[in-house]
Structure formats: C-alpha cells, structure tokens
Design a protein around this nucleic acid. Structure first.
Length: 476
RNA sequence: GGCGCGGUAGCCAAGUGGUAAGGCCGGGCUCUGCAAAAGCCCCAUGCGUCGGUUCAAUUCCGACCCGCGCCUCCA
C-alpha cells in the first residue's frame, strides 16, 4: 500500500508513487537560512520531512532527499557584518551548529545539501533563460525581476487570485511594498538578481547584469533543477513558504525550462506555537534545542513532542508537552525492554538497521503502520503503538519477535531511538558521599539514619532511587 | 475582504454514519524498611452553537460563534 499524503496544490489526499520511468523518489525541502541557531519551529518542519522520508524508505522506496542551505541573503550578510566575519566563515559556523542539532534530533542527513553560494552559475543561467524567454526584465540598476504577468497560471499553488488582491502597503517583515522604490514594473514582480549595493560589502558576484547577488527564490529553483531535474516528486516546506516562495519557484522553473509540472506533490507543515502564541523574537518565546537540553530535556524527548501533533495542524509547544513526551517515552522503553526479553533480542539488535530493513513482519503493529501511511498520521500512529503496549499478552518468543521487528521499523520511521542515554547531570561529590552513607546505613538496617540521610539528599536537591542491588540518583 | 487550518475529558491528541484510540496528569491497588521506580485497575452518555438529512450524527449538509495562519522574501 502506498503512502497517501495531502497535496497543497490539488488539496487532495494523493498516493506517493514512483513515476513509471523512475526508480528514485525525488524530494526537495527548503532548508534553513544559516544566520543563527535554528529554533524548534524550524525543526518541527525538518523533523516532519525526515519522518516522511523515513516512512517512504521503510515502505520500500528509494528516496533522494535534497535540502538546501541558504547562505546568502539580507540576514546572513547583515549577520556576518555584525559578527565581523566573512559571509563564508559566518554561515559555515551556523551550518555546523545546524548539523549538530539535526544529528542530536535524529534527523537523517539529506542525500544532497546544496548551498546557494555554491550554485551561483546555475542561478545566473536560469535567470538568463527567463530574460531570453520574456519572463524577466532588467531594471535600470542592474537588478533583474520576474515578470509575474508573463506567467499565466501564476498563483496555482496558493490559489490566490491576484486580480482580486489589494496590494498590501507593507510585507510581513514590515517593509514597504513600493514598486517604484525597487524599480519594478509591478509590485507583484519579485527579484531574481539584486544589484550590488554598498551595504553588501564584499558580497558580490559577477553576472551579465553587473555585480550583485541572487534573489532568494531563484536558489531553490536552480538547486532543485540541478539535483532533481525539471520535474520531481515532492516539494516540502513550512506553510508560510507556500506563498510567495513556492509559488515563485514554480513560476521560475516552469518558465525557464518550459516544462510544466515542477513538483508533483506539495507537502506543507503547519507552524508551531509556543504557549499559544506565535513564536517571535520580540515575545522572547523562541526556543532553540540548546535551551531545552539545558533544561534537562533530551533531544529525543523534544523530537517526540514535536511530532505529537498532526503535520497540518498547528502544534502548541509547551514545556509540559516535553515532560509528557518524556513520560511516554519512558513507558515505551520499559515495555520494550520486556518485549525484547521475551523475544530474545538485545537492545543493540533492536537498534540495528538489520532488524527493520530486512524483515517484513509487523506483528501487532500492523495497524500503527497503516495509520502512519494514512496522511502521515503520526499522533494516530503513536496511539496505535500504545494500544499494543496496553494489551494483555502472553506471547511466544516467535510472536514477540514479530512485534520487535514491527516496532523497530515503526520507531525507525518515526526516528525515535529508545535506550539512548538520558541527559546526565554530574553528581556533586558531597551528594555522592551522602548517598553512599545512606546506602551503607540501609545495609546495616539503620533505618533512622538512612531516612535522615535521604532527607539531607532531598535538601541538596537529589532523590535516591533504591534498587535491589544498588541505587540511582536523580536531580529533583 | 480572499484563501487555508482548527474548536473532542484538567492538559495534549486520534478517529468513525451506529453510540468516543492513545499519551500526560489525577485516583486506587500490588510490590518494596521508608521514598521512588515499575506493574495492574479506574478516569468524556460527551466531541464549539443552532438547525437539517437519517432508524441512527461527534462523524454528512446548512447557518452561525470563536481561535489561528497566509495574502510579496518567516519553517
């Protein structure tokens, strides 16, 4: 059974299938602009794309996942200047940080991760083609604009009827939409090439229209064309990119290549709210992964929290939600430990790719897999998983093995790793000493002293968890 | 105004034309010197409001109310 996914352009649930002539599923996702740490809202989108890719792969499809790095635009240029670094140095450091966060969150690296700066010639070539075909014009200052009125079906993705649109006086960044100021023929036209300005500093590239830099939208068109071709299977991004970014990508690529059908499927993920509000710097509610891990949460717990809502529904992120995720993951881990024991699998075997890639069994997790394939219903899938967890069972080892394989594949699709080390907080020596003393007191059945020491530990902010053969310490 | 998403238990969140998955929290029990952990059990006559269709609607249709997003460079 193929995966069915809602498509933004047709607004229908459509199956994701390989085209008859192809053996690889090509997906392009708009990546981060590397001018600072990505926030968890960015990561919700990237994680959802990651789950989609993993689900396709678990379903037996070969995927080519391309996700770009935007390393030249107003924000990166300003950021590098403020940091006193070259653009390349500045963006390289934030790209590195992004990769570290991605790895911590269990995101598979895309097969290709092209950078905008590394594709300047391809962008220029595409702009030249657009000018040649009458879809773009050169302004007096050497900037090049896309002529929106030359593209008859412009707006087909976002279903915006341009003729009925009152032109906004400002854009969502609060900047004026003034056609004259930018030397555009129409306010709807957008920049393909931006001529050099003094504030751009050293950041200039030669072009047939003079020095300058590429516009934002053209990079994705050029890079998807380069790495996936004029048409490919799926294009993803946050809902906010639907218009104008993706609309412009379609126009640029289809008008420059003359081939319709840029992306066969559009996958847009809803935004993340924080405590019920839109995230924004001014509200101070922008979480980064680092801020959450410093609060003691593991990246896996954050990942779980971020996939706990359906991708087309805005998700309200709260600290309580991550705590919820932690409890749920712990429950799943404890249950899985028992399942593995029954099946005779080790935790290492459970995590090994062999278990999920080479076996076809789903055991009792078949319904969970069905649910995941139905419009990437992750919360429904998680519910199905826990339904199995809650079932009364007395399994034979063979039945348990089927369940292990099914669960391993599901968790691989979701990108959830169990049995990863918890965030460890170093134990102060004095706390360790108190704990050792209490354990000794308990062994000699000096319970009064043991209780006293427990109290002292509590005051020091630690809880002592007794086992049969020892103890653990956890911060309160 | 246009387009889109959503309103389901204290919180989060699926789903279906036949009378509500799951997680968290909470409560009870078991176990353990204590405490925790863990396990077991319980927890919506109800799915924004009002109509309509139907033997039957939370699920379909209509209207309305409320929240949110986008409408030119924000994932």
């Amino acid at each position: 059974m193929p995966i069915f996914l809602h498509d933004t352009m047709s607004r229908e649930l459509r199956p994701l299938l390989l085209k008859p002539s192809r053996d690889v599923f090509g997906m392009y996702c708009c990546g981060p602009t590397v001018y600072g740490p990505a926030h968890i809202g960015n990561f919700r989108t990237f994680i959802l794309q990651d789950v989609l890719r993993r689900t396709l792969e678990v379903g037996g499809m070969q995927v080519k996942h391309v996700r770009n790095i935007t390393d030249v635009d107003d924000k990166t240029i300003r950021g590098s200047q403020a940091a006193g670094q070259t653009l390349a140095t500045f963006t390289a450091s934030w790209t590195k940080k992004f990769h570290e966060d991605c790895q911590a969150l269990g995101l598979l690296a895309p097969h290709v991760e092209p950078s905008a700066v590394a594709h300047i010639p391809q962008q220029i070539a595409m702009i030249e083609a657009l000018v040649k075909r009458g879809h773009a014009y050169v302004a007096k200052d050497g900037s090049v604009y896309f002529k929106v009125c030359s593209c008859a079906d412009y707006g087909k993705l976002s279903h915006l009827d341009r003729s009925k649109l009152a032109t906004q006086t400002t854009n969502s960044a609060g900047e004026a939409n003034d056609a004259d100021e930018y030397d555009r023929e129409s306010a709807a036209d957008f920049a393909l090439w931006k001529s050099w300005k003094p504030e751009d500093g050293e950041n200039r590239w030669a072009s047939p229209w003079g020095d300058g830099r590429p516009g934002w939208h053209i990079e994705c068109s050029a890079m998807s064309l380069q790495h996936l071709g004029a048409t490919f299977d799926l294009h993803g991004g946050g809902v906010d990119l639907c218009f104008p970014h993706h609309e412009n990508e379609i126009a640029q690529t289809e008008c420059s290549t003359g081939v319709k059908g840029f992306a066969a499927h559009w996958f847009h993920s809803a935004h993340l709210l924080v405590d019920g509000d839109k995230m924004s710097k001014s509200k101070g509610n922008l979480y980064t992964l680092e801020q959450l891990t410093s609060k003691g949460f593991t990246p896996m717990e954050v990942r779980y929290a971020l996939i706990s809502g359906h991708y087309r529904t805005p998700l309200n992120f709260t600290l309580h939600g991550v705590e919820n995720a932690r409890s749920a993951l712990t429950k799943l881990e404890r249950w899985t430990e028992r399942l593995l024991a029954t099946a005779g699998f080790s935790q290492a075997e459970f995590a090994a790719p062999l278990v999920h890639e080479t076996q076809t069994a789903w055991g009792r997790f078949a319904p969970a897999w069905e649910t995941l394939q139905s419009d990437l219903n992750i919360p429904g899938c998680l519910g199905q998983i826990f339904t199995v967890v809650g079932e009364k069972d007395s399994l034979t080892p063979e039945q348990a093995r089927q369940d292990v394989v099914g669960l391993a594949k599901l968790l691989h699709a979701l990108g959830l790793q169990l049995f990863t080390a918890k965030a460890t907080t170093s134990i102060p020596p004095e706390v360790a000493e108190l704990a050792a003393q209490r354990w000794a007191a308990k062994q000699t059945k000096n319970f009064a002293q043991a209780d006293q020491l427990r109290q002292a530990l509590t005051q020091a902010g630690w809880t002592m968890l007794d086992r049969k053969d020892g103890y653990d310490l956890k911060p309160n």
